[in-house]
Amino acid sequence: MLFQLEKVIFKKIINIDRMEISSHKTTCLIGESGAGKSTLLKLLNKMNIPDEGKVYYNETPLQEIDPVKLRREVVMISQTPLLFGETVEENLQKGLMFSEKPPASREELMKTLEIVKLDKPLDGLAERLSGGERQRLSLGRVLLMKPTVYLLDEPTSALDEETEIEVMKSFIKCTKGHDGTVIMVTHSMNVAEQYGEETISLSK
C-alpha cells in the first residue's frame, strides 16, 4: 500500500479513522468544498502535520522521512499554479533542478508541451499565460520530474470541459508510462468517472 492513514486528525478539517491509497493507480478525491480534500493532499507530502494519528508512505511513518526527500518523490501542484522563472522553459526546468536531475533537452521540453496541450514557445513569458495555461505548464513541469507520486489539486479547474478531458487523458497516459501514481482532487465528475481507478469521497 502506498499511503496509509490511521486515526488522523488535523484541526477541525480532517478526521480519518483509516484510509489506504494504492500505488500505480489514479485516485480521485471528491467531496463538497470544505471537506478537507486539499488538506489531505498536504498531509501526504508533509506540508501539513497531523495533530493526532499517523500517515505512512510505503509503510514508513512520514515523521521519519526527510521532507525535501519526500517532496522529490511526492510532488504536489497547488490549486493556484505558481510560476518559477520568467520563461516557459525556465518553468519547465525548475522541477528538475529541485529534484537534482539533469536539465531536459529542447526535444523533451517540446514533447512535454505537446502532452499537456500547451502551444507556446519555450522563450515565451510565463507571466503572460492565462490561468488554464499556467495549470498546463505546471503539469508539464511535474511530468518532466517523473516522480513516484503526483498530488494534483484541481489541476484542470480553469479549463473548459473538452480541453480538460484531452489534457488529463494525455497526462495520465504519460504518468503510467513510468509507473507513476496520481492522487487528484477534482470537482469534475467527468474526470473522476473516466480516469479515477479509485475514488475517495470526503465529507464535512
Score class of each variant (00 low, 15 high):
Met1Val: 09
Glu6Trp: 00
Ile9Tyr: 14
Phe10Asn: 04
Lys12Ala: 13
Asp17Ile: 09
Met19Pro: 03
Ile21Arg: 06
Ser23Phe: 04
Ser23Glu: 03
Lys25Pro: 04
Lys25Ala: 07
Glu32Met: 11
Ser38Ala: 15
Ser38Glu: 05
Lys42Gln: 14
Leu44Glu: 00
Asn48Thr: 10
Tyr56Trp: 12
Tyr56Asp: 02
Tyr57Val: 10
Asn58His: 14
Thr60Val: 13
Leu62Gly: 15
Ile65Glu: 00
Asp66Ala: 03
Asp66Val: 11
Leu70Pro: 11
Arg72Ala: 10
Glu73Ile: 06
Met76Ile: 12
Ser78Arg: 05
Ser78Val: 01
Gln79His: 08
Leu82Ala: 14
Leu82Tyr: 14
Val88Gln: 02
Glu89Asp: 09
Glu89Thr: 05
Lys94Asn: 10
Leu96Asp: 10
Glu100Leu: 12
Lys101Ala: 11
Lys101Asn: 13
Ser105Lys: 12
Ser105His: 07
Met110Asp: 06
Leu113Trp: 09
Leu113Met: 10
Val116Met: 03
Pro121Ala: 01
Leu122Ile: 09
Asp123Glu: 08
Leu125Arg: 15
Ala126Ile: 07
Leu129Lys: 09
Leu129Asp: 12
Leu129Gln: 14
Ser130Asn: 08
Ser130Met: 13
Gly131Met: 07
Glu133Ser: 05
Glu133Lys: 07
Gln135Lys: 00
Gln135Cys: 12
Leu137Ser: 09
Pro147Thr: 07
Pro147Ile: 06
Val149Lys: 06
Asp153Thr: 06
Thr156Trp: 03
Thr156Lys: 07
Leu159His: 08
Leu159Ala: 12
Asp160Pro: 08
Glu161Trp: 01
Glu164Cys: 01
Glu164Asp: 11
Ile165Phe: 05
Glu166Pro: 00
Glu166Ile: 04
Glu166Phe: 01
Ser170Asn: 14
Lys173Ile: 04
Cys174Leu: 00
Thr175Phe: 03
Thr175Cys: 11
Gly177Ile: 09
His178Trp: 13
Thr181Glu: 02
Val182Asp: 04
Val182Phe: 04
Val185Ala: 04
Val185Lys: 04
Val185Met: 00
His187Glu: 04
Asn190Val: 08
Val191Lys: 01
Gly196Gln: 02
Glu197Asn: 13
Glu197Gly: 09
Thr199Val: 15
Thr199Gln: 10
Ile200Val: 04
Ser201Ile: 12
Ser201Met: 06
Lys204Met: 07
